[in-house]
Write a protein that binds this DNA or RNA. Structure first.
Lengths: 336, 336
DNA sequence: TTGTAAGCGTTATCAC
DNA sequence: GTGATAACGCTTACAA
């Protein structure tokens, strides 16, 4: 089914069908109705490739996800779902590219094959080759997370430094003096992964300001890592009475380690952190945490990207999210 | 950058460039090399839209995922990742369509806009309107999960009936006589969701054959639902000594309820089920379970789909997975 | 071995 | 208010 067939059946020119559907020039009510009838009957929709070729835009966004080797966390998954959803709401399609570096074939296709009008990137490194590549290719993009040069680029991000800092202050207010930070994996932190280093910054700054003893621990993105990490903390640093975590995938393990050690939360140990609401509510007792607004972040990423696509000269915009800490039941006064 | 520019810079005709890149007709080594140099220098790749228009195929697969309202489970997420990965390996792109019913705009664009060469569908209902729509449109598709008429269609699926049956037999062999099935949510089961009804079948059949007392419980796809479901079982059906579950998202809650109730796994209560390996290993003790081979299933789905696209007349093929139960530590002899 | 040209289905310009 | 037609960038049948 193509526009020529619609035109033939409605007894008009192809251009008239095009205009009737786009509304870009007036069409008499009579012919518009006749065309619409045929269109509805045959369930016609313009061929995407032909339209993209002619218009020079694909009405498609690229979403670069970590390759399957690196398992996606619930938060990343939420971003994928929310980006797809937000794009669908404005009639944009989303093309998935599971790429790690900058020389991946599917990533290259997106760019030089002009498969998409713009790209959303997740799991950004402070120095990210994919960002360089997109800039060089002149492809509009928005990152979820920011690079080391955040002023020049378009992004949405969580303010990990301030969130972790707030967590520390909250624990300090409750009287805790000896606390731990459960960070992401050592590999990620070493690779210059933003959340890792910014959580570190926020933690050391706040710990120092409040005169606390703070220890930092890297931890893999899974429950077993969380369990062994916290088990280690409990045995080797018995003075520690509270922890703040940005590693949500480790939470089930954190919980298990505390239970095994017979620590009551929050009576004899407090836990606070940054996590998707679902993870926070799955914790027992429910986790006092800054709830990551992943749905909103995905939606804003799409919004920024469409804006940048519409005006390639526009000055860079970003959005830093610092959601409030939701008090649930996992943090209490320090035992004395 | 387009093929004309490459041709001009290499001093040949556009068709020669095309042939040099596709290899569809011999090109002298000398010119091939000259062209390749220019291509490499300018990082040229054929425009995807133009190529799709000319060839009548998009080299893109559609992947229909549940809309964000219904949160994706870890298993669904694994499917998404593995499909994207498998497609990328054969240089196909994946277009995401978050659609529930058959009249979603993004779903319709896939089909009548000819945005993709074929579609992969997940979360299939026994009677699924999306399947009907794809058949009517003549769009090749493969489902992850199967409909009520599995002979006519292409799919990959888990053999829930046989897996659950095996779990029951395993528990019976261990001496359990009073067991429970934790199914998916009541809504899903009522809506004719395959895994739900097939788990039911396998359970009742095996329970009957072994002369056991079996009770079935529906449970939402999250930890809190799992916790209250199992808590209810323990108080209201004290005779039950073991359960089999196909609801992996409920597992953390299942564990919590057992711990709260002071039941030792596997000493005083046994748990077996069907789950992604990651979920099974997160359980304490690790869960004796049939490990869902999501990576392989996604890859096979892509393989079947490409096959069907290549030969639209081919007779329907499918693949039913019945992975063995991996013995871990969560099931033991019935306490007497 | 290479070049010429038609045509894929659209949209937009120009003409009436 | 509507129709004819060129052009988007590519692949491929046909010519040389």
């Amino acid at each position: 089914m193509n526009i020529g067939e619609i035109a033939r059946r409605s007894g008009v020119a192809r251009s008239t069908v095009s205009y009737a559907l786009s509304g870009k020039r007036p069409v008499s009510e009579e012919t518009r109705r006749r065309i619409q009838e045929v269109v509805d009957e045959l369930d016609y929709r313009p061929n995407a490739a032909a339209r993209a070729l002619k218009e020079g835009r694909t009405r498609t966004l690229g979403l670069v996800i970590p390759p399957a080797g690196a398992r996606l966390t619930a938060m990343q998954l939420d971003f994928v779902a929310s980006v797809a959803e937000a794009a669908a709401r404005v009639d944009l399609d989303v093309l998935l590219s599971p790429s790690g570096g900058d020389s991946d074939r599917s990533f290259e296709r997106l760019i030089s094959g002009r498969r998409v009008d713009g790209v959303i990137l997740m799991e950004i490194r402070l120095a990210d080759p994919r960002v360089t590549r997109l800039e060089q290719a002149g492809m509009p993009f928005v990152t979820i997370g920011r690079t080391g040069e955040p002023d020049r680029t378009w992004w949405v991000d969580l303010d990990y430094a301030s969130l972790v800092s707030r967590c520390v202050h909250h624990l300090a207010d409750l009287g805790h003096t000896d606390i731990a930070l459960i960070n992401r994996s050592a590999e990620l932190v070493a690779a210059g992964y933003g959340p890792g280093s910014r959580a570190h910054e926020g933690f050391t700054e706040a710990v120092e300001r409040r005169g606390l003893a703070g220890s930092e621990f890297c931890c893999g993105d899974d429950a077993p890592s969380g369990e062994s990490c916290v088990a280690g903390i409990l045995t080797e640093h018995p003075a520690i009475t509270a922890l703040v975590t940005i590693n949500e995938a480790a939470l089930p393990g954190v919980q298990r380690a505390l239970e095994r050690a017979g620590r009551e939360v929050p009576a004899t140990f407090s836990v606070v952190g940054v996590a998707a609401r679902q993870w926070a509510e799955d914790f027992r007792p429910q986790l006092t945490a800054a709830d990551v607004p992943s749905l909103e972040m995905g939606a804003i990423a799409v919004e920024l990207l469409t804006e940048r696509i519409a005006d390639p000269e526009a000055v860079a915009r970003h959005r830093l999210f610092a959601p409030p800490i939701s008090l649930r039941g996992s943090a209490g006064p320090a035992a004395r």
